[in-house]
Amino acid sequence: MQIDLTKEQYRHMLDMLCLGEWTANGVRLYEDRLTCYDDMLRTFCAHAEAFGFGDLVSYDAEAAAYYPNDAYEQEMRPIVDQYNNAVFWQELVNRMAAKEALQAGYGFLSEEAYTRAKSQAELAYEQEFKQNGLRHVQVAKPKND
């Protein structure tokens, strides 16, 4: 199969592949990475010069492959940071609300009661974190026995 891309489409696809590979492998050890995404990114990077984006990639002779260079990754960084920030707050709200609903005993009633309690707690945590960030969050340290 052949896919024809304009210069602009190629750049958007390269951006999406860079961001996708970063999301898939950014938290993994090198030996645990999902190579299918790494391979796809390298394949697209190999065509960067032909589309006029050679300045976004570097060639690794040892790996015999093209990769996004540091400058290009820094260009993508604000998108990754925005995503990470949004996920952090969503996960914090979700996990705190689930913990609160379970501690209140709603996990042992009906699914509907649990979902209602969790949703109410989520709204409260969203409001709290929107107004105060982490200012009021405390971690209880275990007492030494």
Rank of each mutant, 00 (worst) to 15 (best):
L19S: 11
M16I: 04
K99I: 07
D4H: 14
F53W: 02
L34I: 09
A48L: 05
L41G: 14
Y106P: 14
T6H: 08
A101S: 00
Q82M: 13
S58V: 06
L56V: 00
K141S: 08
C45R: 15
Y125E: 04
G26K: 03
Y114M: 05
T115A: 01
Q131I: 03
A50Q: 12
A98Q: 15
R11G: 08
A65E: 01
P78C: 14
K99L: 08
S58D: 07
C45Y: 13
Y106E: 02
Q127D: 11
Y37M: 05
E112W: 02
T6G: 04
L56M: 09
G54C: 01
A46W: 04
K130I: 01
F108S: 10
A71T: 10
E126M: 03
D39F: 07
A117R: 10
A140Y: 09
N85I: 00
Y106I: 06
Q9E: 15
G107V: 04
Q90K: 14
A65P: 00
D4A: 09
Y66E: 00
L5T: 02
R11V: 06
V27E: 14
F88L: 15
A24Y: 08
D81R: 10
M16H: 12
S119N: 13
F51W: 03
L14V: 08
A86T: 13
Q120E: 14
M40P: 01
L56A: 00
S119R: 07
A98W: 12
E21T: 04
Q82H: 07
L14M: 13
E122F: 06
Q74P: 11
C36V: 11
L92K: 14
G105Y: 00
E112Q: 10
V87Y: 04
H47S: 10
K118Y: 03
A64G: 01
V139S: 15
Q138Y: 06
M13T: 13
N94A: 15
Y30A: 10
V57E: 07
F53T: 00
F108Q: 12
P142F: 12
G107Q: 10
D81L: 13
C45M: 14
R116L: 07
D32K: 07
E31A: 10
A124T: 08
L14Q: 13
V87L: 13
E122K: 15
M13E: 13
G52N: 11
E91C: 06
R95N: 14
M16F: 11
Y125F: 12
Y125R: 08
R135D: 09
L123T: 15
V137C: 14
V93H: 04
P78K: 15
E31W: 01
N25Y: 02
K143H: 09
